[in-house]
């Protein structure tokens, strides 16, 4: 792509990654969540792939594959935390400790260490979606690039 696209991409890729991390991290307080934040961060990866060559992200492919598997396994593990009650029960909400603070009813500013397993699940699903969509776009970009070993 041209130098204009490259310059704008250099500025916008960190912004996209940080905004995706923000949307994942504040998923239990503000609109958004794991899926949305992962999609935003993956669109930053797609911006790298479109504006630069696909070879830039080729070393990341194994990392993306590992992240996808880790996210999926972590999501199911956090779901199994509530198996004493039901599957997907929020075991550590309101129990105190990290992520266990209770929340009053009504409008309030919200605190990051509430909601039990929800932030952990948000991170798991966010990493999974980021790795999944990113690897899809990366495989598309690497297709037919000559002597590649996908």
């Amino acid at each position: 792509m041209s130098v204009v696209v490259r310059t704008i991409a250099r500025m916008l890729v960190p912004v996209g990654l940080v905004f995706g991390a923000y949307v994942i991290m504040h998923g239990h307080l503000t609109p958004g969540g794991g899926f949305q934040g992962g999609a935003v961060a993956a669109s930053a990866l797609a911006l790298i792939l479109v504006s630069f060559s696909a070879k830039e992200l080729k070393p990341v492919k194994g990392l993306l594959s590992a992240l996808e598997s880790t996210g999926g396994v972590a999501f199911v593990v956090f779901a199994f935390l509530g198996i004493g009650f039901t599957f997907f029960a929020n075991a550590i909400a309101g129990m105190g400790g990290l992520f266990g603070q209770p929340v009053d009813y009504g409008p309030n500013p919200g605190y990051l260490n509430t909601s039990g397993t929800l932030p952990l699940m948000n991170w798991a699903v966010g990493l999974k979606v980021l790795a999944g969509l990113g690897s899809v776009v990366l495989l598309f970009a690497l297709f037919g690039e000559g002597e590649d070993d996908r």
Binding site: A39, S43, A46, L49, V137
Partner: peptide, 16 residues
């Protein structure tokens, strides 16, 4: 947010 990430950015990137 999901539509802006997927529908506006990722599909356009794949088409490009």
């Amino acid at each position: 947010i999901a539509q802006a990430g997927i529908g506006a950015a990722l599909t356009t990137a794949i088409f490009i």
